[in-house]
Simulated assay, not measured.
Amino acid sequence: MSWLKNLVGDGEAGGPKKEQMKKIKLMAAAAVVGIGLLFLGGLGDDKPDRTPPPVKEKAAANENRSNPARTAMASEEEYLSQRLCQMLEQVEGAGKVKVTVRLQNSTRTEYAINTTTGKKTTQEKDQSGGTRVLTEDTDSGQLVLVTRNGEETPVMSREVAPTVAGVLVVADGAGDPAVKARLFRATQVALGVEPQKVIVMARKAGE
Rank of each mutant, 00 (worst) to 15 (best):
A13E: 01
G42R: 14
E78R: 14
T100I: 07
L26H: 04
Q142Y: 09
Q196R: 12
V133M: 13
E19W: 04
T121M: 05
P68L: 14
E57G: 08
S75H: 07
I35H: 00
G42W: 15
V164E: 03
S106Y: 09
K120Y: 13
K120R: 15
V198R: 01
D45P: 02
P177K: 06
V8F: 04
G41C: 01
R148V: 11
L43Y: 09
L143G: 04
A60M: 12
L80I: 11
G93V: 09
L183D: 03
A181T: 06
R70M: 07
T71Y: 15
V101T: 02
G150L: 02
A161I: 04
W3K: 08
T163R: 06
M21L: 11
D46F: 14
L84C: 07
W3I: 13
T153I: 14
A72H: 13
R50I: 01
Q86T: 11
A161T: 02
D45Q: 09
Q127H: 14
D137A: 12
S2K: 13
M201S: 00
L88P: 00
S106A: 15
T147K: 05
E78W: 10
R108D: 08
T147M: 03
G175W: 07
G34V: 09
P195Y: 08
P48M: 13
V170T: 05
G129E: 07
A161L: 03
T51D: 06
A112E: 10
R182G: 00
R102Q: 04
L145H: 03
T138W: 12
K5V: 05
K47I: 05
V170G: 06
G36M: 13
M201G: 01
A59V: 08
I113T: 04
P177A: 07
A31D: 04
E124P: 00
N105Q: 15
T135V: 14
N149W: 12
V193S: 03
M21T: 02
V193T: 11
G166V: 02
V32C: 00
R203V: 13
L43P: 06
V99K: 02
L88W: 03
T131Q: 13
K96H: 14
L38M: 06
M156D: 12
R83D: 06
E78G: 10
W3S: 14
T153H: 11
V164S: 02
V160C: 13
V169R: 02
G36W: 07
S75A: 14
T51I: 09
L7S: 09
G118T: 06
R185H: 00
R108V: 12
G44P: 00
S106H: 11
V189L: 10
N6R: 14
R203L: 15
Q196V: 08
V8W: 06
K125Y: 05
K17P: 00
Q188F: 11
T107R: 11
M27P: 03
G93A: 02
G95E: 04
G173S: 12
Y111M: 15
P48R: 05
L80M: 15
A186S: 02
A13H: 01
T147N: 05
N64T: 14
T163E: 13
G206L: 05
Q142F: 01
K18W: 11
A161H: 01
R158T: 08
G192H: 01
Q142L: 08
K17S: 00
V167P: 02
K25G: 04
D46G: 14
L38H: 03
P53R: 12
E159H: 09
I199G: 05
G44E: 03
K17L: 01
P52Y: 08
